[in-house]
Design a protein around this nucleic acid. Structure first.
Lengths: 333, 333
DNA sequence: CGGCTTGTTGCACTCGCTTGCAAAAATGGG
DNA sequence: CCCATTTTTGCAAGCGAGTGCAACAAGCCG
């Protein structure tokens, strides 16, 4: 059971009867090689099953082509679709994604970034959690790019991609108002991340502007189960809400199911619901949920484009619009 | 804008006043270093923010710690949860996952494996698609391990993890029979992968054994949308089925929604449904779907354990049981 | 034919790390 | 205190690739 039977540039060179540099050059775009040698080298490489060792190349060039995706709970529909978009587009830009799972503990985001440094990743994209400033500084100092998606906090040197959450929330309020709703509620988790809070703020602010009260309830994390609990809390109130903006779709699904199956409410006639993310399930006919679409492809495109730039550039913050997707969980439309 | 400001072992050595071998040894478990030098080295490393360069280490040791996950449509609930389990467990075994997305074309699985070779991945885990034999041979010859999950075909040298699909299908048939169903149908996609076909086979076989006819319908891919189409086809038949085994949960959700919303059928009183995978949505109260659970943690554990073995071993095939999860989409239970 | 440009090639050094080997230091027993 | 044994340490040789530099070949012009 021989182990290290990788074929190296040396082997190819020998077979092709050229120097090692020649084969190196054939695989380096824009290097000076004659047509003849190139042919002989590629031929030999083909025959031997040679592939440039990206580890060694990365070592020399001091850039590995690796981009770390740092994420927790990656089986959540929105996260998963973002990862799909990111990996796809990274590959088109001939980079490769390393996936770091930070489910375990909170400091594991920091751990993850250390891993990223160890593998000399060219960049890290953070989808969940928020690393210490000390560690992000270390990353930046190591020449690593940093992209923060929906994490809002300020980190200069990093690219921050956010949605216009406040505005989306306001538009949602207006839509619900037009649908004839009068008792507004906001169903939030206790996660309190900046983007979730921005949605809450925006919705409240819209309520104030229209002189209408907004009931806010927060519970657990942004899951289906929390949605059920929030339904319980909101729908048993003396003044039962007839419009609920849920901080994300998963939660909205749980809330709708509870509203229908436990409280026998008809949607949208007795209760209007709006969600956020536009996960696949939102389009399922059991939910048919009016929601705001996260522009996952745009997000991924912005991130990858920024990574492809030679100079980091200054305008390192992108605020994208969430598009309202009208479906049947709100009257009218 | 200086680029390569990575701190190397040399830097640490200088600061700690030792040789560069000493610092290398401090970071190599089981190497001979005195307590004193180790202390000084770690101290200096800490101060400088040093991290072992895994690229260089991988180059020397000829093993990178990288495991490639090759997958398409990774935002599918089952896939996503498998990836989550795999990344988590790989990290616990101090390996790291590279995610390769093969959504684009069919030969991109081969492309992906080439990437794996280029990065000198220690192993590749294939969750979707089936690579050419030529390329798998190349992988194995390069000393790379290969794990195939739910891909069934024979590739010796690789670890194959499959479920006992036939048996699950048979158990499903019996459960439906006990529930009093008499008109059985199997809703399949046109994907025709071995594991999906094994479910169909198993279900049909069980039907034959009990002298009952099984209607089989196939359409599209294994998605929610296909489920709706299949409902359309199956529920408009002259002899309407009262029991449908769906090849996976996603499809089952689509079928149930169509059955309820378009055909006004009550589940389980007028129609019993069984799915496969036990994705999160199966437990949502709108579906409450009786289904077979993919033991994702077990699968991941088996894969990682095998990768951790020193010698590949011979019993390179695992057949796991899918556990039946009883919920409300089948009467009785 | 000499001198020049242009294009190719190979040598040798470098990247950051591991590791065998031999020298040096520490330990212990008599 | 000396010698044998065990640890610890540094040197130097790789791992597989990229690249500046100089040597060389070829081609062109006068």
């Amino acid at each position: 059971m021989s182990r290290k039977i990788f074929v190296s540039a040396k082997d190819v060179a020998d077979r092709a009867g050229v120097s090692r540099s020649a084969v190196s050059r054939t695989f380096t775009p824009g290097a000076s090689v004659s047509e003849e040698t190139r042919r002989r080298v590629t031929e030999a490489a083909e025959a031997l099953g040679y592939h440039v060792n990206h580890l060694a190349r990365g070592l020399m060039r001091n850039e590995s082509g690796i981009v770390c995706l740092i994420v927790s709970e990656l089986d959540t529909p929105y996260r998963a679709s973002l990862i799909r978009a990111l990996t796809g587009q990274l590959q088109s830009a001939s980079k490769i994604a390393m996936l770091i799972n930070t489910d375990r503990s909170d400091d594991s985001v920091d751990q993850a970034l250390r891993q990223a440094i160890s593998y000399r990743a060219d960049a890290s994209i953070i989808l969940s959690g928020m690393p210490d400033r000390s560690i992000t500084d270390l990353c930046l100092k190591s020449g690593q790019r940093l992209v923060l998606i929906n994490r809002d906090e300020d980190r200069d040197g990093a690219l921050m991609i956010n949605l216009n959450d406040r505005d989306a929330a306001r538009r949602s309020f207006i839509a619900l108002l037009r649908a004839g709703c009068r008792n507004f509620a906001f169903a939030n988790s206790e996660a309190m991340t900046p983007s979730l809070m921005a949605r809450e703020e925006g919705f409240r602010a819209a309520g104030r502007e229209h002189g209408l009260e907004v009931t806010v309830e927060r519970f657990g994390s942004t899951t289906y189960q929390s949605g059920a609990v929030l339904a319980q809390r909101l729908l048993t109130r003396e003044k039962r809400p007839d419009a609920i903006f849920c901080v994300n779709d998963l939660l909205a699904c749980g809330l709708m199911d509870a509203a229908r199956h436990q409280f026998n409410l008809a949607i949208p006639s007795e209760l209007c619901v709006v969600g956020f993310d536009d996960i696949e399930q939102a389009s399922w006919s059991s939910y048919n949920l009016t929601t705001f679409a996260q522009p996952v492809d745009r997000i991924a495109a912005e991130a990858v484009a920024w990574l492809d730039q030679v100079t980091p550039g200054e305008a390192n913050s992108r605020r994208l619009e969430a598009e309202l997707v009208w479906r049947g969980s709100v009257r009218g439309g």
